[in-house]
Write a protein that binds this DNA or RNA. Structure first.
Length: 270
DNA sequence: AAGCTGTCCTGAAAGC
DNA sequence: TGCTTTCAGGACAGCT
């Protein structure tokens, strides 16, 4: 499933090539998670100024608005020079004079949404409460600690919620907590400052490494050239219930928090 | 305000 | 073998 690293790798794979392109049309297939929010004709003729990322959203800046893309859990984007007929899981084609950006998303949790501006109600609704960007300078100990201070919920669920720090999905949440030696059920507000700093560093290192490695975690992930990740990042605890902890050999445990699996080492994480 | 739960969708894997 | 059931996952809506 695309988490922040996969989204960033996708962005890098086509952003430079599509910047400056002129949109001809947006062709939609089966409905995605949210409606587009504008007529395709609104987009036609607009130039693509660039592509940014916020959390797991890709923000495509247009001359008059922003086109937001989300890959959900099974989405991928490819920029095709020559687009053949869409397959059964191809649900959006952004046709431009530099090629066709095609969204492939079997489970259709993804979305393409038009926002008339960065401050529009649509943009605010989707982006307004997103937390700190973990790979940017603003992700400081002070800011992170401040975000966790008021939260009594388990740290794992606070990480997933995305309103303190964005882009940490289910897999990386387990991995980062393992690296930091923090038990996933611990109340976020009850983690000491030194351990918050360790968690901050763990989040940065696990995400930055995954970006470097070209996105990792999903078998069917591919960037906009259609290249799959050359390797899988090996997880220390995720999906390893019963297997020995790489640090202390204790059996990895699996629990469910908020209907999501969490994996951790009962010895190393407290 | 913060924290729960339900929901969307479909492929893969497990169960019968 | 083939059918049915269960599960996974991001993130919003809506309720407490």
């Amino acid at each position: 499933m695309p988490e922040l690293p996969e989204v960033e790798v996708t962005r890098r794979s086509f952003a430079d090539r599509i910047a400056g392109a002129t949109i001809r049309a947006l062709q939609l297939g089966k409905p995605l998670r949210w409606p587009l929010g504008c007529e395709s004709i609104t987009l036609a003729g607009q130039r693509v100024l660039g592509v940014r990322r916020r959390g797991k959203y890709l923000l495509m800046d247009l001359e008059r608005g922003v086109l937001l893309w989300h890959l959900g859990m099974s989405g991928s984007l490819r920029l095709l020079e020559v687009a053949g007929a869409p397959g059964p899981h191809d649900h959006a084609d952004l046709v431009t004079d530099r090629g066709v950006l095609r969204l492939h998303d079997p489970r259709r949790f993804g979305a393409v949404v038009f926002a008339p501006g960065q401050d529009s109600a649509v943009a605010q609704r989707l982006l307004g409460r997103l937390g700190l960007e973990p790979l940017e300078a603003g992700f400081t100990l002070a800011a992170f600690a401040d975000g966790l201070r008021q939260r009594r919920a388990p740290i794992k669920q606070v990480l997933l919620a995305g309103d303190v720090v964005v882009g940490v999905g289910n897999i990386y949440a387990s991995e980062a907590l393992f690296l930091a030696g923090i038990h996933p059920t611990r109340a976020a507000s009850r983690i000491g400052r030194e351990r918050v700093e360790r968690l901050r560093q763990a989040i940065v290192s696990v995400l930055a490494r995954a970006v470097e490695l070209g996105g990792s975690t999903l078998r069917d992930f591919s960037n906009a050239q259609g290249e799959t990740g050359h390797f899988q990042l090996s997880a220390s605890v995720y999906d390893r219930e019963g297997q020995p902890c790489p640090r202390c050999r204790a059996a990895i445990r699996r629990i469910v928090q908020g209907q999501r699996s969490t994996y951790y080492c009962p010895q190393c994480q407290t």
